[in-house]
Amino acid sequence: MDTNTDPLDTLPDAVAADAFRRLVRHLRHRHDAQNIELMGLAGFCRNCLADWIRDAGYDGDKEAARELIHNMPAAEWKATRQTPATEAQLAAMQASIAKNRVE
């Protein structure tokens, strides 16, 4: 057995794509879960997902990718869904981002 193979790489692309779409739709539904909270807890947010689809080959620019994930223009999302971040949320996000660094 190849110990360098991540079991996720054995998932059929259609299964992985369905799971990704379900995650994005779940996050669209749960707009009460703020990006800053996601960043503080898990080290990624909706905007990260937009960056990741671009990294994976999506042809759209940053704004198009965010619109795809948010299901609306990013400026509209920010105006209608995003709340101001607290100092505690910002600190949690910074600590969580530090855990993402791979050395």
Rank of each mutant, 00 (worst) to 15 (best):
M1K: 06
D2C: 03
T3K: 09
T5Y: 00
T5I: 11
T5H: 02
D6I: 03
D6C: 08
L8F: 07
D9Q: 11
D9P: 04
T10N: 14
T10A: 15
L11Q: 08
L11D: 05
L11S: 06
D13H: 10
V15H: 12
V15Y: 09
A16K: 13
A17K: 12
A17V: 07
A17H: 10
A17D: 12
D18K: 14
A19P: 02
A19W: 05
F20S: 15
F20M: 15
L23M: 13
L23Q: 12
V24A: 10
V24E: 05
R25Y: 12
H26C: 14
L27R: 07
L27G: 02
L27H: 06
H29V: 13
R30D: 15
H31I: 04
A33G: 06
Q34N: 08
Q34P: 03
Q34R: 09
N35Y: 00
N35W: 00
L38D: 01
L38F: 03
M39R: 08
M39V: 05
G40C: 06
G40R: 00
L41S: 14
L41I: 14
A42C: 13
G43D: 05
G43V: 03
G43R: 03
F44E: 01
F44L: 03
F44Y: 04
C45W: 01
C45R: 04
C45Y: 01
R46L: 02
C48N: 11
C48G: 08
L49T: 07
A50N: 02
A50Q: 03
D51W: 01
W52F: 10
W52G: 02
W52K: 02
I53L: 08
I53D: 02
R54E: 05
R54D: 05
D55N: 15
D55I: 13
A56K: 06
A56H: 06
Y58T: 08
Y58M: 11
D59P: 10
D61I: 00
D61A: 04
D61E: 07
D61Y: 03
D61W: 00
K62C: 05
A64Y: 02
A65N: 03
A65M: 02
A65F: 02
A65T: 05
A65S: 07
R66L: 08
E67Y: 04
E67K: 09
L68Y: 10
I69W: 00
I69A: 04
H70Y: 14
H70W: 06
N71R: 14
N71T: 08
N71Y: 10
M72D: 07
P73L: 09
P73T: 09
A74K: 06
A75S: 14
A75K: 13
E76N: 11
W77D: 01
W77R: 03
K78N: 14
K78I: 12
K78M: 11
A79P: 08
T80Y: 00
T80N: 08
R81H: 12
Q82G: 06
Q82S: 13
T83E: 13
T83F: 01
A85K: 11
A85F: 04
A85D: 15
T86N: 10
E87I: 07
E87N: 09
E87C: 00
A88D: 14
Q89N: 10
L90S: 10
L90P: 01
A91K: 14
M93G: 01
M93C: 08
Q94C: 06
S96H: 07
S96M: 11
S96D: 10
I97K: 15
I97N: 13
R101P: 00
V102L: 12
V102A: 11
V102K: 13
V102E: 12
V102G: 09
E103S: 13
E103F: 09
